[in-house]
Design a protein around this nucleic acid. Structure first.
Lengths: 188, 188
DNA sequence: GAGCCAAACGGAGACAGTCCCCGCTTATCT
DNA sequence: AGATAAGCGGGGACTGTCTCCGTTTGGCTC
């Protein structure tokens, strides 16, 4: 599934420079950072940027796919270390924290998990969904998680928890609180 | 608290035309709708628009304050009709539904409830927070709601539920599901 | 009603961002 | 080294934001 034809050396160099600068720019100015500016910083013309990444979305995806894959991997690490229920909660906590700290990741994860997204993103989305499925399944088998929950629902709720926490302060100080309200429920 | 000086007739007319067209445009093209276009449709120059509403945010606020106040009022209607616990859940349901259906309302409610927002918005935010406080207090006294919950937390969670539901399909088909997961909790 | 004047108008234009096009450069293969 | 196509890059069209300032007009006063 690698490049059918290897990229020309200069193309690969520019591609990587762009990715680096884009990561910096998005972190600094949010996902609305000026694309022409990113091109300038990377020392290439804007044409080059738009050839490699036809849309802002494409660039965003390229910058964050690794982070998304890492999230999926992290699920299995946690599953190995903790009992299922705790692993799930801890994973959701890290997931929500990531969505808040890394600007743009929340929106991207949202569409990764939805259908109708791009090739690459859909692939990442599947990894994440599969990881969620494993954690949810294990916790349900353990008997600590409601049996009628779909993995996708849990992911959406994590997104919701991140949104809720975001409203508090910039950092994710309240994530654990909202997550525990979520798991415990609001009833007296 | 009305205008210190009554507006000139033409000014008031333009102000209202702008508000009407803005509502249409925001509903149609989302909160990013072209401001110059709104001015054009309202039959005024862009200068006029920017004089009345210095920022997009100001226009958005002016368009939606009524809707936000209506939400606060609705809380008391529901409190009169239903037992406290149910009234709260129903209100949160309507709140989340509104955030999804009316584009832009979610973000606006988010900042209305946060501190550091504009004069008008902060006022609306207070109404909503007060309304939430009444419902939450009643439900806690009734004994159906956890005693350690702050009204603001409930509002943020409603925001989270709206975010989660949004990821599903465009309409708010899943709101009740996520809301009930929220109230019941995720434990088995 | 006529005349005044401050309030309000409106649109031209400066600016910033996106995105495409096409003549030029250069990596790669022989 | 020379051929060639992949890749470069920046100029420029376009869209949207927002300001400035000459012009218009509503609402007084007489």
């Amino acid at each position: 599934m690698a490049q059918v034809k290897p990229m020309r050396a200069d193309a690969r160099r520019n591609y990587e420079r762009l990715l680096e600068e884009a990561a910096v720019a998005f972190a600094e100015h949010g996902e609305g950072a000026s694309l022409d500016d990113i091109a300038k910083r990377a020392g290439v013309g804007s044409g080059t940027l738009y050839r490699h990444f036809p849309t802002r979305q494409a660039l965003l995806e390229a910058v964050y796919v690794d982070a998304i894959e890492a999230i999926a991997v992290r699920a299995d690490e946690l599953a190995a270390e903790l009992p299922p229920g705790e692993a799930l909660v801890e994973w959701l906590n890290e997931l929500a924290a990531g969505m808040i700290q890394v600007r743009g990741l929340k929106a991207l994860l949202g569409s990764a998990v939805a259908d109708g997204s791009s090739e690459v993103l859909a692939r990442c989305g599947s990894s994440v969904k599969a990881a969620a499925g494993r954690l949810v399944g294990a916790a349900q088998r353990e008997g600590t998680l409601r049996g009628d929950l779909e993995p996708i629902e849990v992911l959406r709720l994590a997104h919701g928890v991140a949104s809720a926490s975001e409203l508090g302060g910039g950092d994710g100080a309240h994530i654990r609180r909202y997550l525990s309200l979520m798991t415990e429920g609001l009833r007296a």
